[in-house]
Design a binder for these strands. Structure first.
Lengths: 225, 225
DNA sequence: TTTTTCCATATTGTCGACAATCGGAGTTGA
DNA sequence: TCAACTCCGATTGTCGACAATATGGAAAAA
């Protein structure tokens, strides 16, 4: 689960993490009703902590709650994803521009190594994009960290954008884009290395916009069926 | 409490709203410990709903919770506010640019009327900036709505940016900036009316940047004491 | 057959009590 | 005097039971 410690602390925290994971991976389908008693028993805890976890996920926008009618997994329709990617374009572009002035040389080297390992993974297990997909998020998160802006890091890497990971799982089957994506990542890192914030921002925005186009296309195909 | 219905639904929702209000207005000081039993009694409810409310506020980043040690009101230090305003500049700039293409003529007229009423309020009760401050948020929220991007609206107008309102209460004592701010608002509306998204974005970014400079200065003075 | 009403059932909302954990006052020893 | 230890009160975490509300289906009326 990326930079988080998956299970420790209070039961509510554990439930929150497990639920988030189940939602992101699609184990719990979009729009599915979340029964408190059932989930509480499955996790081996009372309903109290589970309700707290649901409140937390509600704040994360992973579930939608209706008073007296329970909670359901959020539904990522086309409009929601479109909005998400538009916001992401602005925020990650901004992160890139700032990161160009803030990243240390060592951190930029680390980014290069990260991309090297991605390349190896892609060559080794061609179709299995999952690892790269997670790694990709890692790449984006590292750049967010480079902005030194805590709020940006929270929004992009923290709990907030689990929605994105959710979307990734849904669309990670298309291996087509991993090649160009890696290439674009490399371009971005080089722009960062040259401390060219404007270029880095532009490349990142283009990269994310391309990702959206790819996903949008995939949704069209799904809807056609 | 702006576009929200203050008190209805479950007790947890009520507690959440009341707590948020108390935090934003400064009734609950920054960093203050939040005692569950005490608050539950004050609100006339059990600790269960109150704990759920705290989880919700935690997701909103209005309180920070430490396992086994309770919840405290978040502390808005200089760095946090700086980060907040940087993100806001990017998001509201984006909202402005999109709104220029999406707002209806009627909505733009409404914005003009909103500013007219602000002007009246300023003239009538010179020093009392509170109303204008709330109205200012209203202005920004209307533009966010104009972007037709639900995620943007959630981030800028919804629960997320209560932090901003919190900051406003803290710094709303300086009436100096209300005049220029209103002028800038008018400029933005005219850019929107001319459907000039780029200009509108630029003006909005400048407006927010100016607000940050003003607040930053104020923090300096506070720290000097 | 269709629609409406009503009731049994399941699910959510709330509370009070108990267990686990933390923080601090007071004590003891060097 | 100061440090560390111990214990006690206070606070948080958790559970089970009960009340309030919604859901779905059966029965009755049109």
């Amino acid at each position: 689960m990326l930079p988080y410690t998956p299970e420790q602390g209070t039961l509510a925290d554990i439930a929150s993490h497990r639920l988030a994971h189940s939602i992101v991976t699609g184990e719990l389908a979009q729009g599915q009703k979340l029964n408190e008693a059932e989930l509480a028993e499955r996790f081996g805890m009372g309903r109290g902590p589970l309700r707290e976890a649901l409140r937390h996920l509600e704040g994360m926008r992973l579930v939608k709650r209706i008073p007296n009618a329970g909670a359901r997994v959020v539904v990522l329709d086309r409009k929601t994803l479109s909005d998400l990617y538009a916001v992401r374009e602005a925020l990650e572009g901004m992160a890139c521009r700032i990161a160009a002035t803030q990243l240390t040389d060592a951190e930029i080297d680390q980014l290069r190594k990260l991309l090297d390992s991605h390349e190896k993974q892609i060559k080794k297990q061609g179709g299995k994009v999952y690892a790269q997909s997670e790694g990709d998020l890692d790449f984006h998160y590292q750049i967010a960290r480079g902005s030194r802006n805590q709020m940006l890091m929270d929004l992009l890497g923290g709990e907030q954008y689990q929605l994105l990971r959710m979307c990734r799982y849904r669309t990670s089957r298309n291996a087509e884009r991993t090649g160009p994506a890696l290439q674009q990542h490399r371009q971005i890192v080089e722009a960062l290395a040259q401390r060219d914030g404007e270029l880095a921002e532009m490349l990142m925005r283009r990269h994310i916009h391309g990702a959206w186009l790819s996903i949008s296309e995939m949704i069209d195909k799904e809807e056609a069926v």
